[in-house]
């Protein structure tokens, strides 16, 4: 594993994503759902909304950094707000 040049932050990052995937898989099995249509006009399940959230969060973080809006950790708060919005309305 040394060749992969691991660091604690990146390991934690991947651990969180892996945990999210596991949680959402378990949720999908335990509590099956029917896809619903949101503001984007497409049918989404919880998993789709998670994917959209993660992708949007990545872009939000980059925009946050690129435009120098505020110190980077605050972007995470914005991401949580974004996630809540996506899970509620998409």
């Amino acid at each position: 594993m040394a060749w992969m040049a691991w660091t604690w932050p990146t390991a934690a990052f991947f651990a969180v994503i892996a945990a999210l995937l596991v949680i959402f898989t378990v949720l999908a099995v335990k509590f099956p759902e029917t896809p619903r249509r949101g503001v984007l006009g497409i049918e989404t399940t919880r998993g789709d909304r998670l994917f959209i959230t993660l992708l949007a969060s990545a872009f939000l973080n980059l925009a946050w950094l690129g435009f120098g809006i505020a110190p980077q950790p605050y972007a995470l708060i914005a991401c949580l707000v974004l996630a809540a919005g996506i899970f509620r309305f998409v």
Binding site: M4, A5, P9, T10, F14
Partner: peptide
């Protein structure tokens, strides 16, 4: 994943 690791070092 390795690329992600490289990107912060």
């Amino acid at each position: 994943m390795t690329v992600v690791n490289y990107s912060v070092q």
